[in-house]
């Protein structure tokens, strides 16, 4: 029982770590630290770095939360089935 929960918790931590790495990398590196590098590229009238900082990261945040919610629901289900 405790073992199973520990595996569940480890899976949760791995997922959080993966998603938060993306959460950190895109806005902080793409939108702030290396913004000038990305500004060489364009997305229509937007410079890419500027777009990441003022538009793209926000869309990404939404997607990350929905991915997390989806994966955790799956994980919850699997552990419930194994438990029952």
């Amino acid at each position: 029982m405790a073992q199973k929960h520990s595996a569940y918790w480890q899976a949760n931590l791995r997922l959080i770590f993966l998603l938060l790495s993306i959460w950190f990398t895109v806005p902080f590196l793409g939108g702030i630290v290396f913004v000038e590098f990305f500004n060489q590229f364009r997305l229509g009238g937007y410079k890419l770095g500027f777009w990441i900082a003022q538009q793209g990261s926000i869309y990404l945040f939404v997607v990350l939360i929905f991915i997390y919610a989806h994966c955790m629901n799956k994980l919850d289900e699997r552990y419930r089935e194994e438990h029952d």
Binding site: G31, I58, I65
Partner: peptide, 9 residues
Amino acid sequence: LLGWTGGYV
């Protein structure tokens, strides 16, 4: 823009 949305993640 980043600070007041990223916190929700």
